[in-house]
Design a protein around this nucleic acid. Structure first.
Length: 738
DNA sequence: ATAGGGTTAG
C-alpha cells in the first residue's frame, strides 16, 4: 500500500502535466510533505509548477513564500500564475525582481509578461520586454511572438493619428492618454527599473517607434519575422491590421492564410467582418453571414455583434434587429452595436430607447456606449438628455476619452451652447482632426465665422492637416457669414493640400455664391462642375433665388432640379412660395394643385422648446397646447409692444392670397412665435430661450424675434434646419444674413 | 497567445 502510493508519486513527479485537478494536486502535495517533509527545493518547485499550471494562485504563493532561495523555475511559475489570474502588476513586479536576481527568462515566461503589459497598457515597458526577448533569442518562439503582436496591436496608436504624434516624444503622449498607471507610484518605479535595465526594442533599432524604416507597423514586422505561425498568429496580425485601419493588408493576409491551408475560424471572421461591413456592399456581407452559418460560426456571440454592426453599416437596421433579438445573452458590445446602428442610421429616438433598455437590463455603459448615443442628443437637440449623459460621464471618469469629448463638443454646439462646447474643447489634452472639426463646425453653425477661421488656422499649427470634413466645416462657416472671398480661397487651396473637393464642397460654394446674391455666378459654377449636379445643389440655389427674389432664374433652376431629382417636391414648394411672395397667386395655386395631384404634401412647420426638461412642440397655427390661451394672450401683448417699438410686419412672407388682417394673423401664429411666447411665460425673466425649428426662419419672424429679444431683455437662440441664430438686444448673430 | 461595438459631414 505504502509503496504503491509512493510509486504513484514518483510517476506523477516525473510527469507533472498529467495532474489535471486541484484535489489531485493537493493530494500529491500533502503526500510529499508527509513522506519527505517540505525542505526539498526541487520537489517544491515541481509542486509550484503544478499549482501554477492549474492557475491556483493561492496555493502557488503558499509554496513560493516558503522558499529561502528561489529557483528560476519557481520565479517563472509565479510570474505566469499572477498574469493568468489577472494580477498583472504583481506579475510584472515579480518579473522585475526575478531579473534583479539575474535569473534568465525564456519562452515559458515571456508570453505572460507581455500579456501583463498589454493589459496594463504599458507600451514602453512592453517594448523593453521586447528588447529583452530579442537579447535572449526568444523572438522565434511562437507564443511569445503572438503575445508581442497582440500587444502592439492593442497599444500602438493607430496610423491616422500618426502625424500628431510624430513630433512629440511619444512616450509622454502614450502615458498621458492610455495609461491608467501614471500616478501609480509602485508601477512607476517598476517601469523605470525595467526601462533602465532593458533597452527599449525600437529605440535600439531605429530610435523611431511604431512605424519603422520598412514602412511596416510593428505587428506586421513581427509577423514576417516569425518562423512558425499558427492560426492564432494569423488571427492576431489580421486583427492588428484591421485595428490600424489597414484593411487592404488585412484582406491580403486573409487570402494568404487560405493559401497556407489554414482555415479561418471564429476569431478570423469576427476580425474581418467590420472590413466587409465598411468597404463592401450588403451582398458581400450577406455572403459572409452565409459562410458563418454554414460553418456554425453564427452562434458565436462575437460574430453576432459583428453582424449587427455590419447590417447597420449597410443601412439595414431591420436585419441588425433580427440578429440582436436572436442573442440569448446581450452583453455591452451587442447593446452598443445595435444602439450605434440606430444612431448612425438616423433613428435617434429608437437609439435613446435602446440605451434606456440597456441600463434597465443592468448592463453597465462603457466609453463606447456614450460616444454612440451622444450624437442622438446632438441631432435631436435634447440638451437636457445630453447634460444628464455628461454628468454620468464625469461621474465615471470618461470625460477625457477622445471620442466622448468630441461628441460632447458637438452635442453642446448643436444645442446652441457654443461656450460650453469650447470649454470642453479647451480642456481636452489632445485634439485630433475630429475634435477640431467638431468645434469649427460648431462655430460655423452658430454664426461665428471669425472664430471658425482662427481655429482652422490653429488646427494647422497643431500639425493637423485639414481633411475633407474639416474643409466642409470652414466652407460652411464662410457661406453662413457671407465671407465669399475667404470661402473661395479655402476652396481653391484644397487641391494644394491634397484634398480633392467632393460634391458637398461644390454644394457649399454654390451656396456661398447664392446666399451672397451672386446668383448668375452660382448658376454658372454649378453648370461647370466636374461632378453631375444633384437636386440638392440646385435646391440651395433655388432658395438663394427666393431670398434675392429672382423669379426668372428660379424657374430655370426649378426645371433643372426636377430633372435631376423628379421625386423631390422642394422645387415646387419654393417656387410656389416665390410666386406668392411676388403676388403671382395664380401661378402659385396652379403649382400647388399640380403638387397635390402628384401626391406631394408640404411638411408642417414645427418648432419646439425645452422647459423644465420637457419638450414642447408647436406646429404652425397650433391651438392644442394646454396653455394655448395664455400663449395667445402673451402673443397679442407682444404684438402690441412690437408695434410700439416700430415693428412692421412684412406680409409678403405670409405667402398666401388672403386679406391684410388675416395675413398679420398668420404672422403671429408661426410655430416659432408660439414656442417663444410659451418660453417667455414659463421661464423666469432673463432666462435664455432655446428654440428649434424644422424649417428656415422667415424674414418676418426674424425681424420680430430681434424686437422681442430687445423688449423682453432675453437672449433667444433659434436653431433652424441649417444654423443657429443668437438674438440679443435687438440684433442677431447672423447679421441678417442666412 | 487570438476576436465583436464609438466621435466630426448644408
Amino acid at each position: 500500500m505504502e509503496s504503491s502510493s509512493e510509486n504513484l508519486v514518483k510517476t506523477l513527479l516525473r510527469n507533472p502535466s498529467s495532474i489535471k485537478t486541484k484535489s489531485q494536486a493537493k493530494q500529491l502535495h500533502a503526500q510529499i510533505v508527509k513522506t519527505r517533509g517540505s525542505r526539498s527545493v526541487s520537489l517544491a518547485t515541481i509542486i509550484l509548477g503544478v499549482y501554477s499550471d492549474l492557475n491556483l494562485l493561492k496555493e502557488s504563493l503558499e509554496v513560493f513564500n516558503n522558499f529561502r532561495y528561489v529557483p528560476t523555475k519557481a520565479w517563472k511559475s509565479v510570474v505566469r500564475c499572477y498574469s493568468c489570474n489577472g494580477y498583472f502588476r504583481d506579475s510584472l513586479a515579480c518579473f522585475v525582481e526575478m531579473r534583479g536576481w539575474g535569473k534568465l527568462p525564456g519562452s515559458d515566461v515571456f508570453p505572460s509578461v507581455v500579456r501583463a503589459c498589454t493589459h496594463l497598457k504599458e507600451l514602453r515597458v512592453g517594448e523593453s520586454v521586447h528588447g529583452c526577448v530579442i537579447r535572449f533569442g526568444m523572438e522565434s518562439d511562437l507564443y511569445t511572438g503572438n503575445a508581442l503582436m497582440n500587444m502592439y496591436a492593442k497599444l500602438q496608436v493607430s496610423s491616422h493619428d500618426y502625424h500628431v504624434l510624430d513630433e512629440i516624444p511619444q512616450s509622454d503622449r502614450v502615458y498621458s492618454r492610455r495609461s491608467s498607471l501614471t500616478q501609480d507610484s509602485e508601477i512607476g518605479i517598476l517601469r523605470n527599473e525595467l526601462i533602465m535595465s532593458e533597452k527599449s526594442h525600437f529605440e535600439s533599432l531605429s530610435g523611431r517607434r511604431v512605424k519603422n524604416a520598412t514602412g511596416l507597423d510593428s505587428v506586421s514586422k513581427i509577423f514576417q519575422m516569425m518562423p512558425d505561425k499558427d492560426v492564432v498568429s494569423w488571427n492576431t496580425v489580421i486583427g492588428g491590421n484591421v485595428q490600424s485601419g489597414l484593411y487592404e493588408e488585412a484582406l491580403e493576409r486573409l487570402r494568404e492564410m487560405s493559401n497556407a491551408y489554414l482555415k479561418p475560424d471564429c476569431f478570423t471572421l469576427s476580425s474581418v467582418l467590420p472590413v466587409f461591413a465598411r468597404h463592401v456592399n450588403v451582398l458581400k456581407g450577406k455572403e459572409i453571414h452565409g459562410y458563418a452559418i454554414r460553418h456554425g460560426f453564427d452562434k458565436d456571440e462575437y460574430i453576432r455583434s459583428s453582424l449587427i454592426d455590419m447590417y447597420a453599416t449597410c443601412t439595414r437596421v431591420e436585419d441588425s434587429y433580427r440578429v440582436f433579438n436572436l442573442l440569448s445573452e446581450k452583453d455591452d458590445v451587442s447593446w452598443n452595436s445595435i444602439i450605434a446602428g440606430c444612431v448612425q442610421n438616423g433613428t435617434f429616438v429608437e437609439g435613446l430607447g435602446l440605451f434606456r433598455q440597456m441600463l434597465a437590463a443592468n448592463v453597465k455603459p462603457v466609453e463606447v456606449s456614450f460616444s454612440a448615443i451622444l450624437p442622438a442628443c446632438a441631432h435631436l437637440t435634447t440638451l437636457h438628455l445630453g447634460k444628464q449623459l455628461h454628468a454620468y460621464i464625469i461621474r465615471v471618469g470618461f470625460d477625457q476619452n477622445m471620442y466622448i469629448a468630441s461628441s460632447l463638443v458637438d452635442m453642446y454646439a448643436k444645442c446652441g451652447k457654443i461656450m460650453t462646447a469650447r470649454w470642453i474643447f479647451d480642456r481636452m489634452d489632445i485634439h485630433d482632426s475630429v475634435s477640431w472639426t467638431a468645434i469649427i463646425m460648431g462655430y460655423a453653425l452658430n454664426g461665428h465665422a471669425r472664430e471658425a477661421t482662427i481655429l482652422f488656422e490653429n488646427m494647422q499649427h497643431d500639425k493637423i492637416k485639414p481633411n475633407a470634413v474639416a474643409y466642409l466645416a470652414i466652407l460652411t462657416a464662410c457661406s453662413h457669414a457671407g465671407l465669399v472671398d475667404e470661402g473661395w480661397n479655402y476652396f481653391t487651396s484644397m487641391n494644394r493640400y491634397g484634398v480633392s473637393p467632393e460634391l458637398e464642397h461644390y454644394a457649399s460654394i454654390a451656396d456661398l455664391l447664392g446666399r451672397a446674391g451672386r446668383l448668375m455666378e452660382a448658376y454658372k459654377f454649378i453648370n461647370d462642375m466636374p461632378i453631375k449636379p444633384t437636386g440638392s445643389i440646385w435646391a440651395t440655389l433655388l432658395s438663394a433665388c427666393r431670398v434675392h427674389k429672382n423669379v426668372e432664374l428660379a424657374e430655370k433652376v426649378a426645371k433643372e432640379m426636377s430633372t435631376a431629382d423628379p421625386g423631390n417636391m422642394g422645387p415646387y414648394l419654393l417656387l410656389s412660395n416665390m410666386y406668392s411672395a411676388a403676388g403671382r397667386w395664380k401661378d402659385a395655386s396652379k403649382l400647388r394643385t399640380n403638387m397635390k395631384k402628384k401626391g406631394m404634401r408640404k411638411p408642417p412647420a414645427c418648432s419646439w422648446i425645452e422647459v423644465r426638461n420637457q419638450v414642447h412642440a408647436f406646429v404652425s397655427g397650433d391651438t392644442s397646447h394646454p396653455y394655448y390661451d395664455q400663449i395667445h394672450v402673451a402673443l397679442r401683448d407682444l404684438y402690441e409692444r412690437l408695434k410700439q417699438e416700430g415693428y412692421v410686419p412684412q406680409i409678403s412672407e405670409a405667402l398666401h392670397d388672403v386679406d391684410e388682417e388675416q395675413k398679420s394673423d398668420l404672422l403671429y401664429t408661426h410655430s416659432e412665435r408660439l414656442a417663444i411666447a410659451f418660453g417667455i411665460i414659463s421661464t423666469p425673466a432673463g432666462t435664455t430661450i432655446h428654440i428649434i425649428k424644422n424649417l428656415r426662419v422667415c424674414v418676418d419672424c426674424h425681424t420680430a424675434i430681434k424686437f422681442i429679444s430687445k423688449i423682453m431683455g432675453r437672449d433667444i437662440i433659434v436653431r433652424d434646419n441649417s444654423r443657429f441664430h443668437h438674438f440679443k438686444d435687438g440684433n442677431c448673430s447672423c447679421g441678417d444674413y442666412w
